[in-house]
Design a protein around this nucleic acid. Structure first.
Length: 560
RNA sequence: GCGCCGGUAGCUCAGCUGGAUAGAGCAACGCCCUUCUAAGGCGUGGGUCGGGGGUUCGAAUCCCUUCCGGCGUACCA
């Protein structure tokens, strides 16, 4: 019976209908109250010259018998399939326990490598909610791909080079307090002050450029301060990464590619892909409906695209990836299209494996975020606030809880992650505290709470003995079973679409279905066989919620 | 101007590789804690799926067109 779960239901059903007109894709999910799967028979009416209702009946009578289908119904032109609940329940729960489905998927993916470029923060600036999207989406995809058996390489393509460091250096030399250790806050105020004052004072702006030149030339004093800036930000930013459970395998950023761009430029020239236009070296892309891709500026300096071309090559050589993802805001859509096209023109056959995983804009109170103008919300502050609210709720509802701080941390961070991962990444989002501080309804705390409920029941229920699966055929339990059955395909779907929100939606659905089951009747009763069966279901739900949340970088406290 | 993306209930969203009465959550109102965690469950109200054409037995979903919003459009990243 375990074989059922490893097969695609739609494929199997289409084969049972002995008619070549019917394919796997014709099978749909049944409407509420009409069984599990359905075959709409309208489209065959023309060819078979019969009414859909008749066709459905004919298919029904010609059906190959199969013990996983309980019965079928031909109604209103649809042929509805009712699966054998007992068989399905047994296979689903067994699979939750022995993981045979996911292990099969992992075996297929073993040896595949995916590079994921995410977070990729600009190092001279503090970590604010604008950086949350790339960090959360990329961090989640990293876990999802690993879960599915891939070798994932997390890359933080640090923005650790550029005139911003010259500005910062100029500001630090001018106003910096060297008598005490530099903090990220100091750097921020220095940067803001520099921006403000250089708007009035052009000489200052010029100093920013000359200071950066010093860093580029490798002047000892300048480089030392540059390194200090880098260390200071990284130390601060790493605290946030640690709290969020974000990890990277590489921090090779812009500075890393400084000496790796010339070979690319040489190759582009050698392949006659470049031309000089207004003094700049470009690759014309008119044939592909795009503006030219800038390789070097008229003053000879390299650009963003040059660095990305270089980085893509480096990753291809170093990691031999099967996929390489760039989790970067949608604004850079054109940039990546250009870079991918240039790589294709260079003859890189792996150019087809590059994907720009884009996400929408984050604004705050309807306005774009801007470090320069001080219109920002720092991620660390957001986390502090959500954790504090979680702690307040715990103190109110469960004051005797052990590990209050730890639990509040998980709940608070979960709320933040869900803000980033709960909806489709392409949608623009406006940050507001009401939204992240909401712990009711479709939220991470709701899912965590549901799992804590499960754990509580399981702790009370004790050992689960032999299970009679037929005892779980009630509508409430079967709704839960159906969802459990979809877990792996949901994860695969989210990986294929680079869309963690699919898992987030799924977990909400599963939690809702479980809560209905939980309310519908007591799990632990005097009826031992029934209790066993219900505990088995509860355990499967608890484990699935925990696994699913972990793919969204969210922890699951056992009690809350 | 051109290109990309969004437009579904008061708000936030799901559904979009066409299928049966368009689903959740929040907010509002009304219920349910002597019994496994009420961060929960149940109910009520709330929709011209931006507008208009088309394809189809069938369209929120596909095609065309139009309106609104966001972003991009060569020397920033």
């Amino acid at each position: 019976m375990l074989i059922i779960r490893k097969m695609n239901y739609k494929e199997l059903i289409s084969k049972l209908i002995n008619n070549s007109l019917v394919t796997e894709n014709d099978i749909t999910l049944a409407a509420e109250g009409h069984g599990d799967f359905a075959l709409p028979c309208f489209k065959y009416a023309r060819e078979l010259r019969k009414a859909p209702q008749i066709i459905a009946s004919d298919f029904a009578s010609g059906l190959t018998k199969c013990d996983f289908i309980d019965h079928v119904e031909a109604v209103g032109g649809y042929l509805n399939f009712y699966l054998s609940r007992k068989a399905r329940i047994e296979s689903v729960l067994a699979d939750c326990e022995n993981k045979s489905s996911v292990n099969a998927v992992r075996a297929v993916n073993a040896g595949k490598t995916v590079c994921i470029d995410y977070s990729s923060i600009n190092i001279a600036k503090p970590f604010h909610i604008g950086h949350l999207m790339s960090t959360a989406i990329g961090g989640s995809l990293y876990r999802i791909y690993k879960y599915l058996g891939w070798n994932a390489v997390g890359i933080n393509h640090l923005g650790d080079w550029g005139t911003q460091f010259g500005k910062l250096l100029a500001a630090y030399n001018e106003w910096g307090d060297k008598s005490r250790p530099l903090t990220l806050n100091d750097m921020l105020s220095l940067y803001v002050r520099f921006t403000e004052e250089s708007e009035k004072n052009p000489q200052l702006a010029e100093r920013g450029r000359t200071e950066f030149l010093k860093i580029e030339r490798g002047e000892a004093e300048a480089v030392k301060t540059y390194e200090l800036f880098k260390e200071t930000t990284l130390a601060e930013v790493n605290k946030v990464y640690d709290r969020l459970g974000i990890v990277f395998d590489s921090y090779n950023g812009e500075a890393f590619y400084n000496d790796k761009m010339q070979p690319i430029i040489d190759e582009l020239n050698a392949k006659s892909l470049t031309e000089v236009s207004d003094g700049a070296l470009v690759v014309k892309l008119d044939d592909y409906g795009m503006p030219p891709c800038l390789i070097t500026r008229s003053d000879g300096a390299t650009l963003y695209a040059t660095r990305d071309l270089s980085a893509a090559n480096y990753r291809a050589e170093t990691y031999k990836f099967d996929k390489s993802l760039y989790v970067v805001a949608t604004q850079q859509n054109l940039h990546f299209k250009q870079v991918f096209k240039v790589l294709e023109l260079m003859g890189r056959e792996w150019a087809k494996d590059l994907t720009h995983v884009q996400f929408g804009m984050v604004s705050y109170e309807g306005k774009p975020l801007s470090t320069r103008h001080g219109h920002v919300v720092f991620l660390a502050d957001v986390i502090e606030n959500t954790v504090k609210k979680a702690l307040d709720i715990i103190n109110e509802k469960n004051p005797d809880l052990e590990d209050k701080a730890q639990t509040a941390e998980s709940v608070g961070v979960g709320a933040v992650m869900f803000f980033a991962l709960g909806t489709q990444r392409i949608k623009d989002v406006d940050f507001n505290y009401d939204k992240v501080l909401s712990f009711d309804g479709e939220t991470a705390p709701y899912i965590q709470y549901t799992r804590a409920r499960c754990q509580s029941v399981l702790a009370k229920g004790g050992e689960i003995g032999d299970v009679d699966y037929s005892l779980l055929a009630s509508d409430e339990s079967y709704a839960v079973i159906k969802l459990l059955d979809n877990f792996n395909t949901t994860v695969i779907d989210s990986a294929e679409k680079y869309e963690p929100s699919i898992i987030a939606r799924y977990l909400i659905d599963l939690a809702q279905a479980f809560n209905k089951f939980y309310i519908a009747g007591r799990i632990i009763t005097d009826d031992k066989p029934l209790t066993n069966a219900r505990l088995a279901l509860t355990k499967a739900v608890a484990d699935t919620l925990k696994t699913g949340l972990s793919l969204l970088l969210i922890n699951s406290p056992d009690k809350m």
